[in-house]
Design a protein around this nucleic acid. Structure first.
Lengths: 187, 187
DNA sequence: TAAGGTAGAGAACGATGGTTCTCCGAGTCA
DNA sequence: TGACTCGGAGAACCATCGTTCTCTACCTTA
């Protein structure tokens, strides 16, 4: 449905920019041009709309990252660096306000098991993707945890500080970790 | 005022556990036993109460960390490790739900410059503290950024995954970074 | 053209929550 | 004791918001 897409687009943008609670269904109607009646036919409740937004965003977000990394370089180790390049680019986008899952976890996590599950799944998928890249580079699995932590830290630090330089700092740290891990494996 | 303390205690606990929006002033009244009238005399608005909670928590949180680190060891480098030990301990506390500033930034950051400022100040103070420890250990300043990112990443990852092991992973990564930085300085 | 069904605009409803007001009891001071 | 002040409990007020309902216009089909 075209209208459903418009609703999801508007909801995602407004939720991300202002948080879930402060955005009313009326705001989403106004932004999308879709009537309340129609919205409620596709999304029975606001909570359902939230989870649909997160579900779609998860696919899109990880696809954008993977596409960028794949096209950036074919070298397995360089691909790990490319993850942080992509973060840097993302942080610099206008309206960047951190990771949507972290934000929604903070806002709704206390009362919404669905949001907790989505956040957990999204973060697990990201870590798993980094794990694939690490394995492809022939590096030890624990490195995936370390690089993921750097990436997560960069996201929140960039959001709160309003700067994209945490991506660069995370990349610097990642270089050290990757080099050390490589030396440890093949000294 | 004793009543003010009770209000702040209750508000902090409820806000942290459930988020700001879902906690009503009535809930804080019920939890603290302080009447609404009295609460509004000390805290003119709910938003003010939120910022007072954050202000007090900032002092307490950083003091707990610094006290732990100071008492853990006198060795400058070991003190850097102690930061992550403390995080591990914190993550394991019952009711742990991540960093209050990150959570509130996610929930209110879009509409509350005060909360943004508090989160920014708190994170800057933490980074600065790590910077002091790094300097005391005679290590390069950029290491402070790297270790801070690991710590931030560990906080959100621990919160979302519901596990305290990210602190251990961050400690592992920190060991590598610190060793590398030490070798680079005095090879 | 007439009947019927669909969809949208917007009002309405019910609940919630921030903030204020009212009323009443208790303590105080002359 | 009596007037006065203070503070608390809780109702009241007002706005917001999720959700539903109504009414009307339009489209379809015979």
């Amino acid at each position: 449905m075209d209208a459903d897409m418009a609703v999801l687009d508007t909801a995602e943008q407004l939720f991300y920019a202002h948080g879930v609670h402060t955005v009313g269904m009326d705001d989403i109607r106004d932004g999308s041009g879709v009537s309340l009646k129609r919205m409620y036919r596709s999304f029975a409740t606001k909570e359902r709309l939230v989870t649909e937004v997160l579900r779609r965003r998860d696919v899109v977000w990880r696809d954008k990252l993977a596409t960028y990394v794949t096209q950036a370089t074919a070298d397995p180790t360089e691909r790990l660096f490319a993850v942080f390049d992509w973060l840097h680019q993302w942080f610099g986008e206008p309206g960047f306000r951190g990771c949507a899952w972290i934000n929604m976890f903070g806002e709704l996590g206390g009362g919404s098991p669905d949001v907790v599950a989505q956040a957990r799944a999204h973060k697990a998928a990201f870590r798993s993707y980094v794990g694939d890249l690490v394995a492809a580079a022939g590096l030890p699995p624990s490195l995936a945890d370390h690089l993921s932590l750097l990436a997560e830290g960069a996201m929140t630090t960039a959001a709160i500080s309003g700067s994209s330089s945490p991506a660069q700092q995370a990349l610097d740290a990642a270089r050290v970790l990757i080099r050390s891990a490589g030396e440890a494996m093949a000294p």
